[in-house]
Design a protein around this nucleic acid. Structure first.
Lengths: 218, 218, 218, 218
DNA sequence: TATGAATGAGTTTTCATTCAT
DNA sequence: TATGAATGAAAACTCATTCAT
């Protein structure tokens, strides 16, 4: 069996090398410019070899996307784990900050994740891979939802539907990151990403605490 | 002079026809797939003719983008105009609903606007056109900021920095539209766009009213 | 008749303007790069107008070529006229120097004349125009031949066939101009055009005087 | 290693086939008319394949030019080698005749060599290839110069500067070939290429023997 | 498994020329 | 006579993918 094992190990290793090369190319030159030749040259394999490991260029991108989502999720899970006994608000802030960290340390992964949303590119990968990406991409939202549920249960947050609230929070976080990604908007808002991000969290948390009921009732 | 006038009219008309054809192609098949041949065929002109009116494919897209932004902005301005004497909250809701309407009636324009953010495509259009797009794209945010300033002045909203708050609100709106654009996320959140959008506005408005001060102070 | 005359005058004038514009374009940017649009813009007429005066782009070039040949020939004729009573050698040197002057003051015309030799471009102009160019292009050779005939008659030159000798002389002149047109060859020959040109004339004249008979016989 | 060897051999072979096809196309239809499609069709390969072997159309032409220069140079060197112990005059005649042979057996190569002088086309090939062409193109002149130096040393030729004289000779040879390339000029000069070429050599040699000193001194 | 040569449809853009007004 | 909008055939080059070895 050891031969088979070594083979499998080598195969995985080769696959990783190709993905590494692709990541570098795509992150450096954008998601559409690099050619398979570029990737092959960077990975120091032949172009044909790439097709032994990945069915298409789109599939490589899908796998990079999965990597990015995994990275984001592990960041968020770690952040959550570190705040187990804290308040829901603290936990939510921790999640948000983990996202912000991810955005700042891996802007290209973030861009890839955002690009996936629109990209016709879902059309050209096998459905099961597409589904996998989709599942992954929802896990962050799930973490937020669970945290809000906890705050709902503890009475910290006065929300009717935790999932709905999670959607709003998640939307706001994504929105603010996309918004501030453009230098010109940082300039117009006279604010840097850090500040703007925290302001958004403050606003949202304030809303969660206050509830979304009519003010007259509050 | 009537000859010159007619000529100018016809020229503008032809330009419009090309833009119409391009819009149909791009909205039906995505922003990168259609070729200039496709556009020419749809416009029933020769390919060369297109280049008499637009310098490149990118420029066509940029003009479509401007169209979209104009449409959005006029929606928002009209909505705002209709609520002149109302509360800031009502005005903000009106703006948001105008955005929602726009998203629902012109999803492709919305996708184009979102795509622009990422787009390497700003690189290949004349700088002045690029600037025009940029200017337009910031006007929506400006409307939101002004409305929040009004609410701040009237005491409705307890916010420190109206522009920052506007950034948060605008981010949340964009975020929720992007989020709900995917049917699968509608399903997971057990919520339709309408509901989710209103919930997000409720949350955000609640936050604006409550202010982002520490809850202990509230 | 004065109306018709004015018309004809204006027409000739317009034609000249187009040729002027074309000359500038072609001399500045090479003989193939400029487009008819460029020429039209420079002449401040519409593209269609050009085709009222010239049947094609090649024809314009052919007419510029004729201009160049005329210019060269009038230089040479003037030079010859100024040396009427001189020796044949002096006359030949005068002709050669006129060519050299032409080359130095109108390098682009020279390039055009040389380009004509190879250019497939004779194929796309009307035969009669082609013939005209050809006729013109032989007049320089004729002047040389007549001068050599004079020297032959006077006993200055010991040549058997004046036309043949003229061919050799003309060939040498063209050759040395083409040769020295390249800076790198000036460098390799450690010589400038002036010097090299005179050296070639010296060599050729020496040959004409000595005759081409076998040295043993001389 | 035999696999690698065979591969290399096949690759070289394929390259040669493409060059063969290109040569045929360009020699038959001129240096600018044929398209890459034409070349590909003639070589019976796909258009893409050509770009695996040559970076551009210009590069193909540059390589054909190098071929031509090599051919010319080997002709000349062989001719020179065959006249080692002869007089400088005989050697010079041998060189000239080799050039004439080359012109007659490979007129298209000659046209290509002449075309290079003008060619804007040096602009679009890699500098090192351009340099290679330039270097090659000067070797013929070098052979002539060395031969004249020998004649100068032996006292056969009374010239001051052998390189300058070589320039004149080379210029005359090129000039006469270009001149006689046109059938119409053969007709006007009532002379065929052979005769005219020899007459030019006679004239030039006569000049070399006589020196370019003033006749009164001779 | 790995190679890398070959493919060929596809893409944007250009431009000489025509023609209705 | 003058205009300039329209044409449409090229043309060079690219690149994801395949496949014989």
């Amino acid at each position: 069996m050891s031969t088979a094992e070594r083979r499998a190990r080598e195969k995985a290793q080769r696959r990783r090398e190709i993905l590494d090369a692709a990541r570098k190319e795509f992150f450096e030159h954008g998601f559409s410019r690099p050619t398979m030749d570029d990737v092959a040259a960077r990975a120091e394999v032949s172009k044909g070899t790439i097709y032994l490991y990945f069915a298409s260029k789109e599939e490589i991108l899908a796998h990079l996307l999965l990597e990015g989502l995994d990275l984001l999720l592990s960041h968020m899970e770690a952040a959550l784990a570190a705040t187990l006994s804290a308040t829901a608000e603290a936990a939510l802030r921790a999640l948000a900050n983990a996202y912000l960290d991810f955005f700042q340390s891996h802007p290209s992964y973030f861009r890839l994740i955002m690009a996936f949303d629109r990209g016709r590119f879902g059309e050209s990968i096998p459905p099961e891979l597409f589904q996998q990406v989709l599942d992954e991409s929802l896990r962050g939202l799930t973490l937020v939802a669970r945290t809000i549920e906890a705050g709902q249960a503890s009475g910290e947050f006065r929300v009717d539907d935790a999932w709905q609230a999670a959607g709003s929070v998640w939307a706001a976080l994504n929105g603010v990151l996309v918004l501030m990604a453009h230098p010109l908007r940082q300039q117009m808002l006279k604010s840097d990403l850090q500040t703007m991000f925290q302001a958004t969290m403050d606003l949202v948390l304030s809303g969660l605490r206050a509830g979304t009921v009519d003010p007259a009732d509050g």
